[in-house]
Amino acid sequence: MDTATVTHLVTADDTARALGSGDLDVLATPRVLAWCEEATCAALDLDAAQTSVGTRVDLEHLAASPVGARVTATATVVHTDGRLVRFQVAAHDAGGTLVATGEVRRVVVDRERFLARIAPVGD
């Protein structure tokens, strides 16, 4: 099973107040999700012509983390079906408290073919 972890220190830029997802100076849900997705990308071993795109997220943000907290997000591949990859994700603080848990789904795509299908904005 492929697993990867990323660790970040919560800064003022990571708070709900800074990201507009609330008005408290605690780790914002969108940021903890981004860290979990970062771990999913790190868990994939893709060649240079490939990348992955997120397609579905189910995340429970269970505990508040103040500025200065160290949070580690871990992603583990739990299922693959062709290009679809499902990950179990979890984030813990340095004290071992479960901050967030859930599932992220990503689809592996050919980088150039994917970008070629997107029309530039304003055309």
Rank of each mutant, 00 (worst) to 15 (best):
D2M: 11
D2N: 13
A4D: 03
A4C: 13
T5W: 02
V6Q: 08
L9R: 10
V10H: 00
A12V: 08
A16Y: 03
A16G: 09
A18I: 07
G20W: 00
G20K: 06
S21V: 02
S21E: 03
S21H: 01
G22I: 02
D23V: 08
D23A: 06
D25F: 05
V26N: 02
V26W: 01
L27W: 00
L27V: 00
A28V: 02
V32T: 03
L33M: 01
L33P: 04
W35E: 15
C36H: 10
E37D: 15
E37R: 04
E38C: 04
E38K: 15
A39R: 10
C41R: 06
C41H: 07
A43S: 10
L44N: 03
D45L: 15
T55P: 05
V57N: 03
D58N: 10
L59Q: 08
E60D: 10
H61I: 01
S65P: 11
P66S: 07
P66Y: 09
A69H: 05
R70L: 09
R70K: 09
V71N: 12
T72A: 03
A73S: 14
A73M: 13
A73D: 08
A75K: 07
A75V: 13
V77Y: 04
T80M: 11
T80N: 10
G82K: 14
R83T: 14
L84V: 12
A90H: 02
A91G: 15
A94I: 07
T97H: 05
A100Y: 01
G102V: 06
V104S: 00
V104L: 14
V107N: 13
V109T: 04
D110I: 11
A116R: 12
I118E: 09
G122R: 05
